[in-house]
Design a protein around this nucleic acid. Structure first.
Lengths: 204, 204
DNA sequence: GCCGTAAGCGGACTTTACCCCGGTTGACTG
DNA sequence: CAGTCAACCGGGGTAAAGTCCGCTTACGGC
């Protein structure tokens, strides 16, 4: 055998320069985003401002939406940490239902702070929006559902549906207008409605 | 005043030639779609094959996604009719919960037959996917929910969430792969899960 | 330290969505 | 039936996404 800490699924670690460039690109992208908005964030401009070639940008992110996915991914880690090792009820230690409610509220807040990026991360050709390649949200919800007693329910599908009920409103159905004008109101409503939904679905 | 059947919200009816062209474009688009898939459906090609100018295409549909929205819109009318005046439980006459369950199953089936179009109809810049400008799905669901006794629940938001739970899986979270390989299976699962979800949410 | 090679890089090239504006035409008024 | 005007048409122009391929460079083995 070999002495490497190899997991056969992860084909190969990123080369050092590649990693450096990815970081560089993300940093520049974020900067351009806050300076002049998402519409100005073109692949050409990003390449030039990073001092890199256009080919590099596409190799790293594949598509324009990919850049926004990368940005989202980065930001999502904060939420992930709170979920994995923060204080309850968001973190471990509380009953599953409470954690699910807390997670929904946190995710809504997070998504509202990143709606613009998340919208641009959508890509009709390829599904799986809202951040990392493995839909963290969905996995977490599924895990929590597994720890409840829900009769013969199909937990896997339910997890997908709940993920959609959480992200969908902000990604697909609410106008940017409503979001900017009635922001806090919307957050309250979605949060409360999520709690109602979860409690109704999960009661015995 | 005037003797016209005017509703002040609809600014003006489409001019005759404009309507003719829209129909022509949609027909050609559908044809191209079945012949060679969505990727080949470019604005230029559509214009040329319709014998119309490129400008016309953009005036009528605004954006590439708009064409797919138009296509979807057209097809959605069939479902709409069944809902408005078809036999129960999809049509009027059954208890709201049953209608809601039936609607979800029908919508899933419909969406699965049009996933490709629906995906291409997504447009990160503007929300509201899946067909007509007024999200028919959402309105119907909201209407049905209103006819139930759901305590103090916020029915408006719940309608949005359920709409998302219905469309989201197919639009955002399931890979094209899973859809084509395990199609009928997926339809069954989503339909059954929808029924469970609705029954759990709506029981007293 | 040196070498072979696979991964990465760059930027010219192609394709395509989307904009613009001068000329045209349908629809309503008197 | 003629006039008026807003809406519509056409197709060339622009900019940005995405592709390609020859050159360069990191990195593991000797």
């Amino acid at each position: 055998m070999n002495g490497l800490p190899v997991s056969w699924g992860a084909p190969r670690p990123e080369r050092a320069d590649a990693a450096r460039n990815r970081a560089q690109l993300l940093a520049t992208a974020r900067q351009m985003l806050t300076e002049s908005g998402p519409d100005q964030l073109t692949m050409d401009a990003l390449a030039e401002r990073s001092g890199l070639g256009k080919g590099t940008v596409f190799r790293r992110f594949g598509t324009r939406a990919g850049i926004f996915q990368g940005l989202l991914d980065e930001v999502e880690r904060g939420l992930q940490e709170q979920v994995l090792s923060g204080p309850p009820p968001l973190g471990p230690g509380a009953p599953p239902v409470d954690r699910l409610v807390a997670y929904g509220r946190a995710r809504v807040r997070w998504l509202m702070q990143n709606t613009e990026i998340a919208r641009f991360a959508l890509d009709g050709r390829q599904p799986v929006p809202g951040g990392s390649q493995t839909p963290v949200s969905q996995m977490h919800i599924r895990m929590l559902l597994r720890h409840m007693d829900l009769g013969g329910l199909n937990v896997d599908v339910l997890a997908i549906q709940l993920t959609a009920a959480l992200d969908g409103p902000l990604l697909l159905y609410l106008s940017t207008d409503a979001l900017t004008n009635a922001g806090p109101q919307v957050e309250q409503n979605l949060g409360a409605a999520w709690q109602d939904l979860v409690e109704r679905v999960c009661r015995p």
